[in-house]
Design a protein around this nucleic acid. Structure first.
Ligand SMILES: [Mn+2]
Ligand SMILES: [Mn+2]
Ligand SMILES: [Zn+2]
Ligand SMILES: [Zn+2]
Lengths: 159, 159
DNA sequence: CGGTAAAATGATAATGATTTTCAATTTCAA
DNA sequence: TTGAAATTGAAAATCATTATCATTTTACCG
């Protein structure tokens, strides 16, 4: 019962995201190609912070003819639509995460295993705004990544 | 009088940094080349957040025969010595800043003109540590960049 | 001082991630 | 259905950075 309910809710959310994308394409006079639909579909099916290459590989499994460039191009469109956020991290290629229905958050990243934990601290957010204003800046965005060792990796290293 | 005093203090600091570098080279059995000395000298003479290319160009003016690769290699050494910090920002090539005698700080960056303002908020730092620990992480480093529009750019756009 | 092994250098090639180019294909409004 | 315009995949180009390698320097020894 609960499973069925969750399943329904999930597909509803995904349909909403698909509609937002279709709307974005329409209002910007972009075309509704198979590739764009397919890439969005696969993107929505994977809820991780993945790289363009990881997404490309997943897309290939269902749609083998899609090119790497199209994945990159579509990721830009998804970001423009507000469905996706591009993360430029300290090292490695950019990673992409779902944005729709996700509030702003920052990341706690394990330097051992690469695990991502999404965090938000309203007090930090407030102080960031205040700090910007103290220096006369009009605050726009910010980026905060906290690096450390996660509980699992701490156990491994200590055991 | 004050000028002379400041001048002396400045060169003292620079000499200390040069000595630290020479020590680093010695203790690691690296050689004391003209290029390394020259690049450090130019690096110390420019107190900005500069790219490898900007440093390369400045070095070239006084030491035209120095290669780009050597500038990159020496920047790595300066970072290892603790005289320099490499900043991987949201976009563009890495930037390098003086580290010796500079406490940890984060950056407020103007999206209009690219101005860097160094900021530190002990309360934010404390909350970052706390946030990491709340999730069972052993805190290591963090990165925080606040983007906004600086007072000068705000005036320009409003005027 | 020479002599010499090891390290450093500069030029250039290679790399990795991303973007651009372009000929062929697809979309879509008329 | 048709044709102009957008999109695509493949491949080349780009950008920042790193690796390679023949030549030059450095540091040490006699
Ligand atoms: Mn996230
Ligand atoms: Mn700084
Ligand atoms: Zn971990
Ligand atoms: Zn500005």
């Amino acid at each position: 019962m609960i499973m069925i309910f969750n399943f329904k809710k999930e597909t509803d959310v995904k349909n909403k995201e698909k509609n937002l994308f279709q709307n974005y394409l329409s209002t910007h006079k972009f075309k509704h190609s198979k590739q764009r639909k397919g890439i969005l579909e696969i993107f929505l099916s994977i809820d991780r912070h993945l790289t363009a290459e990881e997404l490309y590989r997943a897309v290939k499994q269902k749609y083998p003819s899609v090119g790497f460039a199209t994945v990159y191009r579509t990721l830009k469109l998804l970001c423009a639509t507000g469905l996706c956020r591009e993360l430029k991290l300290e090292s490695g290629p950019a990673r992409y995460e779902h944005l729709y229905g996700h509030k702003h958050h920052d990341h706690l990243i394990c330097t051992g295993c690469g695990r991502f934990v999404e965090v938000i601290d309203p007090e930090i957010e407030r102080l960031q705004q205040k700090l910007s204003k103290t220096h006369g800046f009009l605050p726009q965005e910010h980026r905060m990544e906290l690096y450390g060792i996660c509980p699992e990796c701490r156990n491994k290293n200590n055991g």
